[in-house]
Design a protein around this nucleic acid. Sequence first.
DNA 1: TTGATTTAATTAACACTGTTTACTAATTTT
DNA 2: AAAATTAGTAAACAGTGTTAATTAAATCAA
Lengths: 211, 211
Amino acid sequence: MGIPERREREKEKLRRKIMDAARTLFVEHGVEQTSMRKIAEAIEYSPTAIYLHFADKEALLREICREDFSSLTQAEIAAGDISDPVQRIRQIGMAYMTFGVQHPQHYRLMFMRRVKVVPVEEDLRRIGDPSHDGYAVLRHVVIGALEAGRFRENFTDPDVICQTLWAGVHGAVALEITMCDDPWLTMAPFEVRANAILDVLIAGMCKEAGA
Amino acid sequence: MGIPERREREKEKLRRKIMDAARTLFVEHGVEQTSMRKIAEAIEYSPTAIYLHFADKEALLREICREDFSSLTQAEIAAGDISDPVQRIRQIGMAYMTFGVQHPQHYRLMFMRRVKVVPVEEDLRRIGDPSHDGYAVLRHVVIGALEAGRFRENFTDPDVICQTLWAGVHGAVALEITMCDDPWLTMAPFEVRANAILDVLIAGMCKEAGA
DNA sequence: TTGATTTAATTAACACTGTTTACTAATTTT
DNA sequence: AAAATTAGTAAACAGTGTTAATTAAATCAA
């Protein structure tokens, strides 16, 4: 009696279809410009059909982000495959920024919108799990460098270190995304700025030897 | 014959009234949540009246930002009143971040939204003018420190230096604004993070002596 | 194989949004 | 006083997220 199972599969299939179409439209035209009706049109369903799978637009957005966080985390993990702990931090930072500028709309969704604080239980369980939590990946590597004595004496708290590194790379990405075509400013090429901020972060936090 | 002058004054007066009401509502409830109708209601005019003074909501927003940029610039100038060029950079950075966390909604308008690129001639004329251009203020101070030989050898381009400093402080503020109440993360107190990023930026860019 | 029941999906509507058009009332000019 | 300019408005348009009411389809029980 596999009828409920089949129905479940079909339901999941439509759910996927909605998320894929929504992501494509969000990325292509931005969140604001993408209406529920347009998403519905793309999948050839009525707008109300979406509400059978997601509570509202915000919830749909949140689910998409959850998936995108995983890909960023994977990119970080791949970049962390290098021996020297300080260089590992640099690689992770560069992977993060590359993700940001290559997927600016994804990045906007993930890190540049006020999140409605609805802590789903499943999310909370993932905290600290390095296969889903990008912050945990960085934190792990930072602790490694910390234990190897690579940081200056005034940097001992792994969270402060992580959040300082994050501030630097996030700032570079966020400015690029929002300011890149502002006529007020003449921005240096992103690659230059990305390397500069990494140089500064590492030179500022780590002992001279590890340069 | 002061009739046109009087009319001009009255027009300007309503314009001010619109901008003040709009700013208050934007800051209090956010841009998205503030409709033109609500602004109109606040000033006891019809929604259409706003369109006699501003082309659209975006233009109204832009005018408000222009004013806010000036206050930020003033805060920077006030913070720059200190002799040592490196400490001056630190003070400016701290003033910038303080402005951001104390006026998060203003900051959102100014630095966290994609700007429709409509370069008004008057704006373009203000570029580089330190009384209206906050970036120019920083740039001036950076060049001062550069001439005093306070930067490391690998930092010679004032724009790259400015934009790296900016990335750092913007990252700290932006993360604070968007992430402060995310249950996923346990953020260190903002003051700690603000000082940490300033320490890192300066230690990473400046010669050891200037610590 | 019926009839009842659950499920999936839709149509139509509600209460909004930014913005425009057509109009009115007031003021200024001739 | 009549004409012309102006400030301001009401009503409407096209679109938004979302919900209530309704239909069509599939499944289950008899």
